[in-house]
Design a protein around this nucleic acid. Sequence first.
DNA 1: TCTAAATATTTTACGTTTGTAATATCTCGC
DNA 2: GCGAGATATTACAAACGTAAAATATTTAGA
Lengths: 163, 163
Amino acid sequence: MSVANKPRERTVAHPPSKQRLRLWLRLLRSSRAIEARLRERLRTKFAITLPQFDVMATLARYENGITMTELSRHLMVSNGNVTGIIDRLAAEKLVLRQAPATDRRSYIVRLTPKGLLHFSAIAKAHEEWVDELLVDIGAAEAESIIQQLDGLVRSVRSGDARP
Amino acid sequence: MSVANKPRERTVAHPPSKQRLRLWLRLLRSSRAIEARLRERLRTKFAITLPQFDVMATLARYENGITMTELSRHLMVSNGNVTGIIDRLAAEKLVLRQAPATDRRSYIVRLTPKGLLHFSAIAKAHEEWVDELLVDIGAAEAESIIQQLDGLVRSVRSGDARP
DNA sequence: TCTAAATATTTTACGTTTGTAATATCTCGC
DNA sequence: GCGAGATATTACAAACGTAAAATATTTAGA
């Protein structure tokens, strides 16, 4: 079934390496397009940035809070970066830092009640926006892409062998 | 072969809207993972940033150069943003601004010979890295994902109706 | 045990990228 | 020539990554 087995196929135009490059560019383009839409709506409708929303979404899944390092790993974002985002969210009283008794190096970050309330409203709108943006993608198709992307992420992750 | 043809399948758990949300999160995660790898290698091997590489890649496709506005549209990046990137590339003598005789508002930006030479080497390595990162994705599978992402981008683009 | 080195956690400092808004300059239709 | 629109830059704030610094914890060795 592989393309390589059909020398006469007209589709042989692109060698695998070019094809993978095209895939990567397409991937980048798609996520940037969606990201731009969501960012704009978050700003105009809720006066919040996308990274701040991402942080709140992560915190919402950890009722008891998590440390800064765990947070940065979840978001695939640098450690020093999270500090600034949390600073701004804390200034708005949407999150708070708690000092755990056991380890005085770290902080536990969590949503305030106000933060949780605020987040719930934004998350609802956010889900609707995504649904609207991707309306042409059926459930089966979405599932299919998800599976393939999962494989892709695993592939990228495992490629940890550095030359 | 499609999942939809098996009504008894346990996978029917997720409603379409949740499925689309998962798809979006997966998309974001994949591109961030790949982006991080490429960014790191560009920095360590070639002392260049990803956006700077993106700009050079675009300029490489326009031998006669393009204007700042065209460049920003290509990269899906704000107008004021390109200025800074070009400033830094120009400081390295990798690109240059030409003032066209006809329109004194605009600049034509193009790669210098040094820039083209430098870019060719980076692009070669870049393609190899992508190929390596996505090695588990076959040509047919890549094509399949590309098709689906194209549909997705079209869907997002057409969703220009703003409430 | 006690102290020094190694490790972990966060913040700070710095430079680049990003978007938005405001500004300066220029073109073109009228 | 004037005003609307185009083009690019500047100014500002947020986000991002890396590296270094500041604290705190753990571990190893005498």
